[in-house]
Amino acid sequence: MDWSDDAIHLAEKRLDMGNERVVIVGMFVLTELRIAAILSFAFSPNFAWAIGSLLALGVIGTLSGPIYDTWLNLNIESKVHATVLLMMSQSDALGQTAGGPFVGWIGNRLSVRASLVVAAVLLSPILVVFGRVLRKR
Rank of each mutant, 00 (worst) to 15 (best):
S53V: 13
S40C: 15
I8W: 08
V25N: 06
L15C: 12
Q96R: 11
L122K: 02
R34T: 12
V133C: 08
Q90F: 06
S78N: 02
T97W: 04
A7T: 12
L54T: 15
R14S: 12
W49I: 14
W71K: 02
P101N: 03
V128N: 00
R132E: 11
S89I: 00
R132S: 11
L86Q: 10
V22I: 08
G61T: 14
I76L: 08
W71D: 05
V25L: 10
R132C: 14
I126S: 08
D5M: 14
A42E: 08
V129N: 03
N73R: 03
I38D: 07
D92T: 05
V112P: 05
L94E: 04
G104K: 06
W3Y: 14
G65Q: 13
L122G: 03
V121D: 02
L86K: 04
F47S: 13
M27E: 04
A120F: 04
I35Q: 04
S78Y: 00
K79L: 00
D92W: 07
D69A: 14
N46P: 09
S44T: 11
G52T: 11
V129C: 04
W105C: 06
V129Y: 11
K13G: 07
L63E: 10
S115W: 06
F28A: 03
M1W: 07
K79I: 01
S124T: 13
K13E: 12
N108S: 12
N108T: 10
I8D: 09
A7P: 13
V22M: 04
P125Q: 00
T62D: 09
V59E: 14
A50F: 11
A42H: 08
G104T: 07
Q90H: 03
I8T: 11
K13D: 09
P66Q: 11
I35K: 04
F47T: 15
L127W: 03
F28D: 02
S124D: 02
D69N: 13
L72N: 06
L127G: 02
S40V: 10
G52D: 12
R113M: 06
N75P: 01
D6V: 10
D2H: 10
S89R: 03
G95E: 04
T70I: 04
P125W: 00
